[in-house]
Structure formats: C-alpha cells, structure tokens
Amino acid sequence: MTPTLPRNGPKTWLVTGATRGIGAAIAQAALEAGDRVVATGRRRQALVEAFGADSDVLLSLALDVTDPGQIAAAVEAAVARFGRIDVLVNNAGYGHLGLFEEMRPEDARVQFDTNVFGLFDMTRAVLPIMRAQRSGHVFNISSIGGLVGGESGSIYCASKFAVEGFTESVAAEVRPFGIRMTIVEPGFFRTDFLDASSVRYGDTPIADYAEASAAIRAFYTARNQNQAGDPAKLGKALVTLANADNPPVRWSAGTDAIAVVEGRAASLRVELDAWRDLSASTDGDFPFREEPTFGTAWS
C-alpha cells in the first residue's frame, strides 16, 4: 500500500520487541507524547496486556523478526491502519553471553538471525515507505557492546558491531531522501535483559574456563535488576531525538555508556599514536592520488 504524503501531526512509530523492557518503554513514551504506535512482539497477547486493546492510536501485532512473511504483513498492516510509518525502532533482540569456546556454532547463527538479519529485513521492508514519504527516522538499538567488546560478549558484541557498521553505511545512503538513522547505545538498563527468561549463556563447558565462566555469570547475576538506567527515561529521550531537526547518527544512553565511549575514544588515540609510524610506513613509494577519508565521499 502506498503511504500518504507528509503531513503535520502525530508521528506513527513501529516498534519491534515491544512486549517488555526498552521496547515497551519506547512504545509507551511515544503514546504519551500523543503519537501513534504499532507495537510488535512475538506474543500479541503480551502486547495487549501491556498497552490495552487496539485503538485509533495503537495497533498491536504479532511479529517474529526472523520471519520475512510476518515482517511484510506487519508493515502492510501498519500502513493500512495509519497511512505511513514515520519512526522505525529496531529493538527486537537478545543477548547470548559466555566464553566463545563454550558456545556452539548454531548459537552464533541464531544470535545473528535475530539481532542482525532480522534488523536488516525490517529496515529493508520499511525504507521504501519512508523514501516515498521523503521522511522518516530509523532507530537501531545497539549497545555499548556495539562499540567495545569484552569477555563473554563475543557473539553478542559481534552482532551489535554489525548493526553499527550497517547503520552508519545506510544512513549515508538514505539521507538524501529525508530519512535519518540513529544508532542507540544503551549502557546497563533495569530491564529483564539479564533475567533467565531473556539472556542465554554458552552451554558446552570447558574445564580451562571454569573459573572465568563462573565469575562472568556471577557478575551478570549481581547486575540483574541493579542497573542504573531507567527504560522510561530512555523512551522519552528517543521521542526527543525523533523530533530533533538534526539527530545524531550515534547516541549513547546512560552515564556508564558515556564513560565507555570516552574511554574508547581515548584508547583509540593512544594506540594510533603508539603505532602511527608503522601504519604510515605501509604506503607505497609510487605516485598516488590522495583519496577522501572513508565514509566522507558520499556525505
């Protein structure tokens, strides 16, 4: 269905993974701001319990982002109900944590199917709508684990690194059509992300890693429901960003996230300077034309 032409008034949001946690908080913040929301999740009944019955500002849909058929149906239903999609929030995902050798190859594939390929497919389905409108905003929920890797985060962080590279690249491609894309990098937020109902761990133990593996699980168990971040405040912040004239491509959420970004920036500078001469030595002795810095040629 063809979207309606741009108009003033409430925005229409499509939020994936809206049954709980950050996704639910974002959907609620958009509703409280007077916008319209298409709330999606694997279990529609959970959405009804969270937000109530469908109305002139709310549409709840069952959606598994690893199912292309459900993605197409959800996008079609959203446009049929509200005429357009102004904001897409790619939030659906989960964390598979643990030491790399203690995880199975299929663990990585399933992690990427949801966190990466599901996000790709949702974005691919919605971008034509936004291009036709010549407006739109895509929020891709990443993590501080999308900027900095660490013990226990190999496949989870890899999935979020992929989301960040994807978003930076596509943001440059769609900007001429009035579409903005923002990477959201939350720190630790008080959701059920670390609950047994959500987080997954490697389940092929190796004796050499026994002590480290136990320490990692103890760390996350202690953090569960003891995080500093407030999902409701994050949801309101995204409403602010959705209404900004020049929103950022990358935005960090929480003081812990700010500290991680600052530390990453500093460590990159230190490492670059320490090995600058060796890096520069790899240029050839033959004439060459200075090229623009990668990522700026199409900006």
Results as ranks from 00 to 15, higher is better:
T2G: 14
P3H: 02
T4N: 11
T4K: 12
N8C: 08
P10G: 03
K11V: 06
L14M: 13
L14N: 03
V15Q: 01
G17Y: 03
R20Q: 13
G23I: 05
I26E: 04
A27R: 03
A30D: 05
E32T: 13
A33L: 12
D35I: 03
V37K: 02
G41R: 02
R43H: 12
R44F: 10
Q45W: 09
G52W: 14
A53Y: 04
D54T: 11
V57L: 00
L58I: 06
L59N: 06
S60T: 14
L61T: 01
L61W: 01
D67A: 11
D67R: 11
D67H: 12
Q70L: 12
I71T: 06
I71H: 09
V75T: 11
A78K: 13
V79T: 15
V79R: 08
R81V: 07
R81A: 14
G83Y: 14
D86K: 14
N90G: 13
N91F: 05
G93E: 11
H96S: 12
L97S: 10
L99V: 14
F100E: 06
E101R: 03
E102V: 03
D107Q: 07
D113K: 08
V116F: 03
G118Y: 04
F120P: 00
V126C: 04
P128V: 09
M130T: 00
H137M: 10
S143P: 02
L147N: 05
G149M: 01
G150M: 01
S152T: 10
S154G: 09
S154Y: 02
S154V: 01
I155T: 08
K160L: 02
V163C: 02
G165P: 00
E168T: 06
S169H: 07
S169D: 05
A172F: 08
R175S: 08
I179Q: 07
V184F: 09
P186T: 11
P186Q: 10
F188L: 11
P205E: 04
A210P: 01
E211P: 02
S213Q: 12
A214H: 09
A215E: 06
A215S: 07
T221I: 13
N224R: 14
D230L: 05
P231Y: 02
L234P: 04
N243R: 15
A244M: 15
N246G: 08
P247I: 15
P248Q: 15
R250E: 09
A253D: 10
A253K: 06
G254Y: 00
T255P: 05
A259C: 00
A266T: 09
L268P: 00
R269A: 11
R269K: 10
E271T: 14
L272V: 07
R276L: 12
D277F: 00
S279Q: 12
S279G: 12
S281E: 00
D285H: 03
F288G: 10
F288D: 07
R289F: 04
T293I: 07
T293K: 07
G295N: 08
T296K: 12
